[in-house]
Design a protein around this nucleic acid. Structure first.
Lengths: 340, 340
DNA sequence: CTGAAAGCGCTTACAG
DNA sequence: CTGAAAGCGCTTACAG
């Protein structure tokens, strides 16, 4: 690696002080047009890249946003990620990502790899960080935005979520009002998962609105995990009672549930209708195209980044609940003319 | 934000010099056990977090690895990502991610957001960076690892790829030898995509080995993009000739192709067999469980991170081509007893 | 509009 | 084993 070009080299070549070079780069102080011109030329010619660490140290801003996500699979990760990236780079920031392990990892340093020491603020996705850690950071005045999770009770951290409750309610309304189903199964997500809790609220609201008593036999635990969801459905069916429709929790689980039912010789949607949540890109391609709720994943990521940057800039921000909408395909029993 | 605790605070409280505190943290110079003990206690009590920028500036190492990926969807992103993360944090590094835009973005600074100015080395995924940029960085002695892409001709950059050629050859061998197919379709990926090129080589090798002349009518362009793949298959069928089997390029495309064929009333695998590549988590859940080639996505990411860290440490490294293997389910015509 | 100088918070020879 | 001091490459009041 050849010797790095520094601001001193640029200053010397351009015949100005390093202060001036700095001002040209940062464009935060007026500089004579011709001086600036000359400096830019030298920068180009020398291929000068300001040292990021030095800038951060001197300016006391890291210009970096941290993202904490728990180790998840799932197909919506890339979408969420690209939304966040879009917001981060649009604002001129860098992005530091930390995937928090599900299980404790040996030799991991006490300090989490991202925090105030190397970022100006953090986007925390779902269960990526504990309530206590969040509250502690927030108490220090460190900018934070929660994604797909609302604020811990003790404090008020801005968040971006989607309309889980209403979306699910509309979905179940459709099953009841259009198809006349009254026996509807519901698979919960992981314990404590907020998306799942809200979806269940929407589910129950719809039933109640239509005077339908929820049947506890038809509740299962899918954990937003395909295999687990399939197992939960097998368990429900082993009760001897058969629901007319099942809300699987999310789309990936719907895929596994469909497979299991089909293997059991149960026809979808004739014997049992299946619905999901997310409108994953694979939803149209399942054995029976999936009726589901569209969730604005990319948009949510983008908005989270913007909200965080506004906070870093000292602006006041409001939490956001983004709208969702029903996407009708065939797995609910509708005959959609085309199904994308 | 309250005043940050610095190394000076720790030194004062512990009654030592900042040099000693630094040594305790970095554990790179012997320190008396009791001194170290005392310093650690103060660090804990004060919740001291060393400023990352200052460390980087003083040590001239960023302790950060950069990852460049083009804007992609696809389900294997999370897997690849978690493998990379695993390698990066295991080595005690941070990870800076940059998603390079498909289309030019306005207001983007000339300097790419990650490079020698803020990382010790880069993992470059497929088309994330141009050959010229790669060569230029490599010429400067900057550590680089390519992921799912081999080195530009001009230089020798270490890479991690998977056995696309052999994997595809075994897959096609299976179609020919077990099922007796001779009319086999092939969907190409994006122009210039190396994975696709190698898969085509494997495809042609298998045909040749069995004395089968490839039929150009049966080649199409799927671009590893579900809709495009489905369209390509429609085009092939509109020729009037019908292949006995189709290799769709990847699993996501297989999903879309299946959907299209089923809508056309074509039965899988009886009328046309469908096979893919990747062994995506959704492969077992398609309308007909997919026969495909398993690609070690997570492992490849992990290995890329390790290879890069070895380079940064000045060790000699070898490129890696990871093995793939055939996964037989039902879409090829086999009756698998169980299909996960 | 521009420069000289202090300072950001660490690491690391150097000396002891 | 430990400390005093230089220095990493920038930014930013301060002065002119």
């Amino acid at each position: 690696m050849m010797r790095k070009i520094t601001i001193v080299d640029v200053a010397r070549e351009a015949g100005v002080s390093i202060s001036t070079v700095s001002r040209v780069i940062n464009q935060n102080t007026p500089v004579a047009a011709e001086t600036a011109q000359r400096v830019w030329e030298v920068i180009e010619r020398l291929q000068f890249n300001p040292n990021a660490a030095a800038r951060k140290l001197a300016s006391k801003r890291t210009n970096t946003i941290g993202l904490i996500v728990p180790m998840i699979g799932g197909t919506f990760f890339p979408l969420m990620f690209s939304g966040i990236e879009r917001g981060v780079y649009e604002g001129g920031f860098e992005l530091l990502v930390y995937v928090s392990p599900c299980h404790p990892v040996p030799n991991r340093p006490l300090t989490p790899p991202i925090g105030p020491q190397n970022t100006d603020g953090l986007i925390v996705f779902t269960e990526g960080m504990s309530d206590e850690d969040l509250s502690a950071l927030h108490a220090k005045g460190f900018p934070l935005v929660l994604l797909h999770r609302s604020s811990p009770r003790e404090c008020e951290i801005p968040y971006v979520t989607v309309e889980n409750r209403l979306g699910t309610e509309q979905l179940i309304d459709h099953l009841i009002e259009v198809h006349g189903y009254t026996q509807i199964g519901f698979l919960r997500g992981p314990a404590g998962n907020e998306d799942s809790y809200e979806r269940e609220q929407g589910f129950r609201a719809s039933l109640q609105k239509h005077g339908i008593e929820p049947d506890e036999t038809f509740f299962g635990v899918g954990n937003f995990h395909p295999e687990t969801a399939a197992e939960a459905v097998r368990l429900i069916l082993s009760s001897g009672k058969r629901p007319q429709a099942i809300f699987t929790g999310d789309d990936a689980s719907a895929a596994a549930v469909m497979k299991t039912l089909i293997e059991m010789g149960i026809s979808i949607p004739d014997d049992i209708a299946i619905v999901g949540f997310d409108d994953d890109f694979l939803a149209p391609y399942l054995p029976v195209p999936l009726t589901t709720v569209h969730s604005p994943i990319e948009e949510a990521g983008y908005r989270a980044a913007r909200l965080l940057i506004q906070q870093i800039r000292g602006e006041k921000v409001e939490s956001l609940v983004l709208p969702t909408h029903l996407v009708i395909r065939r797995s609910c029993g509708c005959i959609a003319s085309h199904s994308t």
